[in-house]
């Protein structure tokens, strides 16, 4: 242990790298492409930059979790459908998404948006006020609507290609895993339960809603929370497509200050906190809501 520590100290001195978290108070000097909640400018501190990164991570993670749950549950239930087409579409979806690395999928979506979509002047407009172009997806907010000015849109709100690619990639990828969890949960419910429900005259939708799903949920929640955690961790791949999440910004910070140890420690501490909180929640859930 001492061997490593002494080497580290020597190396840091040699490269004139500072130690400690003092750098957090210094001016960052770089711009951040987008920020979900906070305002930020190059004159703000590193600390603020990192916080912006964190909020960006949380933004994409939370929206991703909600969307992935919806999509995943739909696909999972579709896998159990009696309709041949629905069943096999869903199965093909799951099989494909689970066997291709997430990074490949992120690059793919990014390429689709930046290469496949038309420029702002020929933007697609599926709904009034919503424009899809290779500069991003523009949609109206309560206060303003996007308008074409010159080569780009102004006004309204925008999903940057980076955010959109990350969100779509994370959602579609995680949904495949959630689909399998939902399917396994429903299958785990004893056949006799559906038989008894049918014998009592309950219809198929009633049986699913009143008898099967409540029991399936207990089996589904633990692995589902695991997937939520995976989605959050996977959002760190943002660094590969240029979305300024926590890892991205920490990376830039590390490059500028040279303080790699502090930077990585920060990243790990944040993610560890998130993971342990979710684990704690799951333990609580198992203890209090477990199958009676």
């Amino acid at each position: 242990m001492w061997f490593f520590a002494s080497n580290t100290i020597a190396n840091l001195e040699e490269r004139k790298i500072a130690s400690g978290f003092g750098f957090l108070g210094r001016e960052a000097g770089f711009e951040i492409g987008e920020s979900a909640f906070l305002r930020y400018g190059a004159a703000d501190t590193y600390a603020r930059a990192l916080v912006v990164g964190l909020t960006n991570t949380l933004a994409v993670a939370l929206i991703g979790i909600v969307l992935a749950t919806g999509l995943g549950t739909t696909i999972g239930l579709s896998r159990l459908s009696r309709n041949f087409l629905l069943r096999n579409f869903a199965a093909a979806y799951v099989e494909f998404m689970r066997n291709v690395p997430l990074l490949v999928q992120l690059f793919f979506w990014y390429a689709v948006i930046t290469e496949g979509m038309p420029g702002p002047r020929e933007a697609l407009s599926p709904l009034p006020g919503v424009f899809i172009s290779n500069r991003g997806i523009f949609f109206p907010t309560f206060s303003s609507a996007p308008e074409l000015q010159g080569f780009n849109f102004t006004g309204g709100a925008v999903l940057t290609p980076e955010f959109a690619a990350l969100l779509i990639g994370l959602t579609t990828y995680t949904a495949a895993f959630i689909a399998e969890i939902v399917r396994a949960g429903v299958l785990a419910v004893d056949r006799g339960q559906t038989e008894a429900a049918h014998a009592l005259g309950l219809s198929r939708p009633q049986t699913t809603r009143l008898v099967v799903l409540p029991q399936a949920l207990r089996v589904i929640v633990p692995p589902m929370t695991s997937q939520y955690l995976n989605l959050t961790k996977n959002s760190s791949l943002a660094v590969a497509i240029g979305y300024p999440d926590l890892v991205s910004i920490a990376n830039t910070t590390m490059n500028q200050t040279g303080q790699a140890i502090e930077g990585i420690a920060t990243i790990m501490a944040v993610y560890l906190t998130i993971s342990l909180s979710i684990s704690a929640f799951m333990n609580w859930y198992n203890a209090h809501v477990a199958m009676r």
Binding site: D190, G192, Q193, E195, A196, A197, A199, V211, P214, Q215, M291, R292
Partner: peptide
């Protein structure tokens, strides 16, 4: 039924 099949929840 032989295995009762009561709804446990």
């Amino acid at each position: 039924f032989q295995s009762f099949n009561l709804f446990p929840h």
